[in-house]
């Protein structure tokens, strides 16, 4: 029983991270019908940006001195990472995706794969292939509740994700930018005719999604202790599965999908076989796309003949 609870706790915190990354996939797909493969590398770069920011702020010496990293600096690290990833995401959109925006659908898809490969290999080149230990931006405190190990890191992951989700919902539904984003996702051309600056709206979508991925990157670093330039490959793919599961283009769906994927992965690892942990994610993906391609919270659309 306590083992099951433990798996659920771990699954929920991992799932929160998937959910944060999934938002970027879902928002971009909602607007451009593009699977932004490079998003997983934006996530990776966010984690590294956080790493370098924390290092620059002297986290190592503080750690050596036994001091905890102050909370305001931790928030600062988060913001720096989010800003760097947002800039990267918008740059990718401007330089690589905008030129192929009106090309046949597969052209942007391949371009996105290309950008993803480029950033992976640049990451290997610049950051080096070896994993790095993530600095303890948050000093870990462990609690034990009836055999279940809970850490402040896991709680923070869940809370930060929840806050960002609420913030995103407010942004999408209460601000002018959010309204423009929704309009563009329904019909880009019509939105343009209504005087919406679609280029700016698309850039904003990339910026916001990328910032959320960066937050996911830092939380991932805290949770998994190490980061490496290829960390985005599998994590990003799973986050994408989460987006599809929830119903691609659907923001609450991404949250639901992320949590479900996190949970199922932990449960399979715990009760079936850790070797097939990743296979289950792909099986879920395939089953969803084949039997319910609109996802759990999506709506069906019919092709006009």
């Amino acid at each position: 029983m306590s083992q099951l609870l433990q798996q659920i706790v771990n699954g929920l915190s991992l799932g929160s991270i998937y959910a944060l990354i999934a938002l970027g996939y879902t928002m971009v797909y909602g607007i451009l019908k593009l699977i932004n493969f490079a998003h997983s590398e934006v996530f990776m770069v966010g984690a590294y940006a956080g790493y370098f920011a924390a290092t620059w702020l002297g986290i190592e010496s503080m750690e050596a001195a036994g001091q905890a990293f102050p909370l305001y600096l931790a928030v600062g690290v988060l913001l720096v990472a989010m800003a760097s990833s947002a800039a990267l995401g918008m740059a990718i959109e401007r330089l690589a995706y905008r030129p192929v925006r009106n090309a046949p659908r597969l052209t942007p898809l391949i371009t996105a794969i290309g950008v993803s490969l480029l950033l992976q290999n640049l990451g290997l080149l610049v950051f080096g292939p070896n994993p790095r230990r993530y600095p303890p931006v948050l000093k870990e405190v462990t609690y034990e509740l009836g055999g279940v190990v809970l850490t402040n890191v896991k709680v923070t992951i869940f809370v930060v994700t929840l806050l960002l989700m609420v913030g995103l919902q407010l942004l999408v539904h209460r601000t002018w930018t959010g309204k423009a984003m929704r309009a563009v996702s329904v019909n880009l051309d019509a939105a343009k005719l209504m005087g919406i600056d679609t280029n700016r709206t698309i850039a904003a979508t990339f910026g916001i999604g990328s910032a959320l991925a960066a937050a996911g990157g830092i939380l991932f670093g805290l949770d998994q202790i190490t980061i490496n330039p290829l960390m985005g490959v599998l994590t990003g793919l799973k986050a994408f599965v989460a987006a599809v599961l929830g119903g691609i283009g659907n923001v609450p769906g991404a949250m639901l999908g992320g949590l479900l994927i996190g949970l199922s992965e932990q449960l399979v690892a715990g009760y079936v076989s850790p070797d097939y942990r990743d296979a289950i994610t792909f099986l879920v993906l395939i089953a969803i796309l084949i039997f319910r391609p609109e996802g759990l919270l999506g709506v069906v659309r019919q092709e006009k003949v």
Binding site: A96, P108, I110, T111, G114, V115, L118
Partner: peptide, 10 residues
């Protein structure tokens, strides 16, 4: 290689 792929697509 990746850069080449992107350039070809564009």
């Amino acid at each position: 290689y990746a850069l080449l792929l992107i350039l070809i697509m564009i």
